[in-house]
């Protein structure tokens, strides 16, 4: 598997990461190196082997249905570049 310039530009856009035209070429190379490296895994025969989801034998931890969090709006909004009337205020999003 490998990616071309167009694909990298598209992924960058989807991830909202700005990649300049100059950087694009080298990023294609870097990404393809990583993909090649990961691709080596496909040389292993995994037929009939169940996918491993965790290196430790653990099950998904669960929470009781109790309200024990929230209620600290000031802290939640503290790092927001802008907030007004208790809302996050962001540049207008037009549908």
């Amino acid at each position: 598997m490998s990616v071309d310039k167009e694909t990298v530009a598209k992924i960058a856009n989807l991830a909202r990461i700005e990649v300049s035209e100059d950087e694009l070429e080298s990023t294609v190379g870097e990404l393809n190196n990583i993909l090649d490296w990961v691709e080596q895994l496909s040389e292993v025969d995994t037929d009939g082997v169940e996918a491993m989801t965790s290196v430790v034998d653990a099950s998904l931890p669960r929470r009781e249905d109790k309200v024990t969090d929230g209620g600290y709006r000031d802290q939640v909004l503290k790092n927001a570049p802008q907030s007004e009337h208790g809302f996050f205020a962001v540049p207008k999003v037009i549908e």
Binding site: R63, V67, D69, G71, V76, L77, G86
Partner: peptide, 26 residues
């Protein structure tokens, strides 16, 4: 449910904005 799917803040409808928000759901 009382609390949210992956966090312990409340789900009540119509509360003051951002008062039912934890560090997880923000």
């Amino acid at each position: 449910s009382e609390a949210k799917l992956f966090s312990s803040s409340a789900t009540t409808f119509g509360a003051e904005p951002n008062t039912q928000v934890s560090f997880v759901c923000s």
